[in-house]
Amino acid sequence: MIKVKRSHELILLIFFLALMTIMSILAPSFLTVNNLLSVTQQMSELGILALGVTVIIITSGIDLSVGSIAGLTTIVIATMYGMTHNLAVAVIAGLVAGILCGAFNGVLIAKIGVPPILATLGTMTFFRGIALVISKGNAISDFPESYYFIGQGYIFDTLPVQTVIFVILALITAFLLSKTPWGRRVYSVGNNPVAAVFSGVKLDKVLLYVYIFGGLMAAISGWIISSRVSTARADLGAVYLMQSIAATVLGGTNIAGGSGTIIGTVIGVSVFAVLGNGLNLMGVSPFAQNLLMGVALILVLLINNMSIIKNKIVLFIKLNFK
């Protein structure tokens, strides 16, 4: 199993390096410090969302509501700011909203036992609905100048703030997963929930925190998005939903649970970001990005499952032509 995991990350890394090489040949402005920094900036929002999704998928769950949570967060921040004119309060309220959404998912999944895909299919619509009701379907752009720092600012005039946040959060998540009891329990639940419970793991508590974590990451992502585009809108996170799942799976997290790493997810997100940025520099239609993202995902998994495909063909030939 460990061998398989390593080989997946290796395939992905080779794929990624090949992609980087192709991009730097085709687009001369690609391999510059400034451009690479802007790539990291572009990947941060998706990346942060994917951190939460990775943890969730490791438990063999899924969260379709992360995009809606991000959107709701932007609305809560904007509305609270409109009411209090205190940015700190507004942002905290936004993050708390994200945590509450995650907890709501967690209760449905961990306490009631609804399959994650169905629970979050429902809450995806529900959370988006709440955001629409609060905002009456409008976009809100009433923010102070200082709000834009998170999504548009630079540290030392070079490092994009959101890149720094992404790196810090990725490190924290990696640490939580690999070094804390909670992380261990997350893997154990994904690997064999029955055995985990039989070893004294509190399944419902672990899952509850996992979905709260997913909600918090979605909220932080939403905060950065709204700061970058200077707007709050209910549908702001929606585009990232499927991408975050795709990037996580591309990064080697098994959709059936039990395995996956943050480094893998970061590479997965990077592949998408490099694709997007490189194609953009080459002047290729933005529509091609979608296409190539899908192709990349399928291609890597096909290579990963090569042995299964080979076995099937061999058996087929054995039975029919021998």
Binding site: Y187, S188, N191, N192, A195, F198, G258
Partner: peptide
């Protein structure tokens, strides 16, 4: 298998 072990770990 079912209740005692995390086979992949």
């Amino acid at each position: 298998q079912l209740e005692g072990l995390l086979a992949k770990n």
